[in-house]
Design a protein around this nucleic acid. Sequence first.
DNA 1: TATGAATGAGAATTCATTCAT
DNA 2: TATGAATGAATTCTCATTCAT
Lengths: 216, 216, 216, 216
Amino acid sequence: MAREPSPAHEERLRDADRSQSTILAAARDEFAEFGLGGARMDRIAERAGLNKRLIYYYFDDKEKLFQSVLEQAYRDIREQEMQLRLTELEPATAVRRLVEFTWDYYLAHPEFLTLLNSANLHRARHLAESKRARELNSPVIETLATVLERGRREGTFRGGVDPVQLYVSIAGLSYFYLSNSHTLSAIFGRDLLAAKARSERLSHMTEVILGYLLHD
Amino acid sequence: MAREPSPAHEERLRDADRSQSTILAAARDEFAEFGLGGARMDRIAERAGLNKRLIYYYFDDKEKLFQSVLEQAYRDIREQEMQLRLTELEPATAVRRLVEFTWDYYLAHPEFLTLLNSANLHRARHLAESKRARELNSPVIETLATVLERGRREGTFRGGVDPVQLYVSIAGLSYFYLSNSHTLSAIFGRDLLAAKARSERLSHMTEVILGYLLHD
Amino acid sequence: MAREPSPAHEERLRDADRSQSTILAAARDEFAEFGLGGARMDRIAERAGLNKRLIYYYFDDKEKLFQSVLEQAYRDIREQEMQLRLTELEPATAVRRLVEFTWDYYLAHPEFLTLLNSANLHRARHLAESKRARELNSPVIETLATVLERGRREGTFRGGVDPVQLYVSIAGLSYFYLSNSHTLSAIFGRDLLAAKARSERLSHMTEVILGYLLHD
Amino acid sequence: MAREPSPAHEERLRDADRSQSTILAAARDEFAEFGLGGARMDRIAERAGLNKRLIYYYFDDKEKLFQSVLEQAYRDIREQEMQLRLTELEPATAVRRLVEFTWDYYLAHPEFLTLLNSANLHRARHLAESKRARELNSPVIETLATVLERGRREGTFRGGVDPVQLYVSIAGLSYFYLSNSHTLSAIFGRDLLAAKARSERLSHMTEVILGYLLHD
DNA sequence: TATGAATGAGAATTCATTCAT
DNA sequence: TATGAATGAATTCTCATTCAT
């Protein structure tokens, strides 16, 4: 007997959705703070203000929960990248914009860095098992290719630049500095996250990337 | 009456040293493979072929063991950096040499990357507690400053380049690619560690750094 | 919407209470037999017929478990003391009654003695941490004060007797004999817990206390 | 070939004796502080400033070491009791002297109390295994019998007093107060070891014992 | 959908004791 | 007589997971 879903049913569904989101957010914070090995299901439940059993109900086990958190993290950054509209800008401005965006996003979402680290520690097993791994590919790569090509045609950019390599380089310049800010700060004996240090880093990175790309 | 240490006594001391080194190596591999949280003292003992109790005898607990492993890892890379003799090379060659060295070292010592990640996940607490943290500073920074200055005076390099920023950038270009090779491979759907991909990456990085530094 | 707890819910709660009581009783016996240091969490779980993990679930750790056992032991003896109704008896009879009660209680609850010894070995740390320490004060002290005062007014008891001192003395006469019965038996070469020895001890103690209190 | 012991040999023997005494003292303190179960062989070696292996060389194992400590503790108090010369005093003075001595000794040797407690927790197994257990019997018992008899003949003491019972009672009055001073202090909320409290306790105990013994 | 109670398999750490010299 | 190195068997405590409702 097919029935119209009752309002009560709908409400329960919304509750269910909300619970899952709450759990995902709590798990993301826990995994980000302690890594996959150090995260505690108990604490995730506590952070979420929900019963531990419910986590298992929705996500089966810790590994699958981590996988879901990881996918969500990728979806989040991809969604932001989608807003960039780089093709509407001058090539140099577009690249500068991408450098800034990457830097700002990593700064605002430090959990993204530690989640990536955890994923890689486990040899990206969690992505390999994800059917949607390829969907997590950045939309920026395509855009960047267009930007590079236009820059080259305009004569401002050098040719022969692989957009994937450039994308990875732009990410790496921010990533290493921020992901390792604690050890670097300890070793250099100064706070790499102070406002001045941050702005100097951003200038440097922009200069490196544009200095490399731009013809003289 | 102070006595000469007997040969037997000396040998025992060497045994003690050897045991500690063996444990450190085993722990390094275990921590690199599973992270601090995922590492198992049992497995470390097994890898070392020594009694688990002995680890505690020499290193007190897991945290201190990790700290020792981390310090050793830094000492290892610093020792290699010391051999570089960059000042004896032309500025551009010196920089190229440093890019290659960094890349090769990370490739040959993937455990260094994961150890760093673990250390940062724990906010470098283990370095902060290390009295020798500042001693872990890279000797290359000084050398790089000299190289940059000479290049600028010769007119081949641009001026105003902070050697620390550049050092971090060179490291970051290799680090991100290698540390995240698993997730990147999954997402791009190709093996980033294949020989061809590796040589392309090295070329790209060198071009980026030298393209940025060199005047035209 | 707050709901009435279901019968099933209530039963589970009762189970929880029952489990905690079972654990407490098992722990009391184990601590009494082996002391705090010699007690084994494994054995407590076995005695309780419950999973070891559950002990930690309810009592956090061994120390807190001991503290709970200790508080319970005090509550038990205080509850019995509360039944004594000493004020309804003649002063001399009341004191005799208290001596007998103390003796009988220690005889019937040898675990109380060893628990006290353990607590003192640890400098009463477990009581100091108990918010309810002061509540464990004996209700008998107050009663004894009344009894002593009435005896003095009647002219049968001597004056100037501190009820706390007397209470401690009455306890001490039984306590030392019973708590140290093993060493004393070994040294004297006779069984201090044989029926005859026990009745002689009770007579002696009563004579000491009343001989001291009573005017002639 | 029987030889005269060489001076060097003698010296070694004295060293050996000294080592054993040092170990015994260290063990006594450790057992007194932590009980038999809580004592650590490592700490005993550390306290003694001697190698742990040496303890096993002289005392076989932890149990035998405890037994030796216990025997030594009894020998110490018996030796002091031997100096009391109670028979040279008036009966009442002699008893008062014994009460004071017991109190002072327990105060000065709190380790004696905890050692006794530990011994009893283990059902005096360590004494039972000692061939010299009966030798540990107090010489005071005999003396006390003489004193009581003389007091009775002089008409100052009541008759029918068992010297063993009295000895136990005198010990018990001090023992309970001091052995349980921590719990009692916590429960009564005042420091039972403060100077004033101590002198009040001694007065009370003397009054109890003499009030019981003395005719009017 | 939601929950408190319960569990088995580990995991870090401890400890008395022995080895080798 | 004396010692530093080494060990196996516990022991406390943890953790992901399941049960029962």
